[in-house]
Write a protein that binds this DNA or RNA. Sequence first.
DNA 1: TCCAACATGTAACCGGTTACATGATTCA
DNA 2: TGAATCATGTAACCGGTTACATGTTGGA
Lengths: 222, 222
Amino acid sequence: MSLKHALLGFLNYGSMTGYELKKIFDPSIGHFWNAELSQMYPTLKQLESEGLVEMEVEVQADKPNRKVYSITDDGARELSDWLTQPATHVQIREPLMIKVFFGASLPKGELIAVLRHRADELRQTIEAQEQGRVLIGKFAGTFGLDRAGFFWDLTVDAGLKHYSAGIEWIEAAIDKIERLDESFFDAERSRVDAIDVRRAMEMLDKLKTEMPEVFAGLTTRE
Amino acid sequence: MSLKHALLGFLNYGSMTGYELKKIFDPSIGHFWNAELSQMYPTLKQLESEGLVEMEVEVQADKPNRKVYSITDDGARELSDWLTQPATHVQIREPLMIKVFFGASLPKGELIAVLRHRADELRQTIEAQEQGRVLIGKFAGTFGLDRAGFFWDLTVDAGLKHYSAGIEWIEAAIDKIERLDESFFDAERSRVDAIDVRRAMEMLDKLKTEMPEVFAGLTTRE
DNA sequence: TCCAACATGTAACCGGTTACATGATTCA
DNA sequence: TGAATCATGTAACCGGTTACATGTTGGA
């Protein structure tokens, strides 16, 4: 579970409470890993029971007590072990792609609208990220966190690259779609390309036996 | 839930069983939406109870009976409604980015190794996708599914673009990291950049009040 | 006066994964 | 003979989301 290690990573910078973790978490790695407080608290408890962090109650007269978590030696070891292992990756899930895949089932204009909408969202995200970068610089600089700042920046780069690639793809896709004839689409919304499933299955099987390498490649989970 | 609509999308092509859905699902949209049979069966049942699909048992003497699902008019309506709505998107979760973010906590060489490993994986994925594209062409062409084939292809484009962007970013990142001095990293694996969390929090708050627009942008969930 | 911030949680739910179960047929 | 394919599921688990609960302090 990556959340555990993200928390360890932050606690490796210094001891803090769940509440503070949330506050530092969101603006820094929130763009590629979200976590709610309601998930953090039990996760911290779990880390404690595993001996990877320690907790100390800080009594406060005026405000509720704080539970300050610190990383242990075991925790630091676990963190660097995890960091050096190859990264796993989560199954990609893209509802937009499902819509595009079944694009023939909706009118041309509507499909393009859906794509444009997503492109707009992506542009907004990019703008937000770029503004955020300013903040990152200020924040990291103020604390002499040059090292942390450098890597922070790299992850923002990744995000920006990812989003721009998305926009480029959408623009190219819209272009291709616009060149299609209206008849290509299923204007009356009846069955599109009704297929004989049995025959299709036979065909798939045939391809599978005839060119197994290709099929193996195709089904390889990314 | 996108799975429901993906199933409706396929059933809109023709009636089939859960087992067949799985077989057509994997090679076509498996690269951006995975689903196990153990999830499909109950989902189909749910769709049936919602009146979006109908089921007919096809008795087979030699093999187990088949439950053939067909889309209903309500189902077709639900599908095209869903298709025309703007796509939601799933929170991005990138364990690799967490590793990069805490990159200062591991030796330079190890961080680069992690990145290279991921780049290799991406290259393999791209190769598989490109081979798969051949299959797609054959399969779609055979059935006169030109329309379906066209959109299928678009989604493959998206995947390829996404993966190449990933590789490009990794290569640039490795480049930047390689230019860093060894001292930039935390060779002895002690605390990196220990920070005074309270002061950091104060600073964050100050930035938040001084330049709220930037912060708003930053925390906007993508 | 009312809302935001501080600070901690619990509980229900939900989508998805993994493991397990069953039992026939066909092909290497 | 034993693995793969056909064909259907159930059950436990897991990470994450949403909703709810509690009680204080300080500022608009």
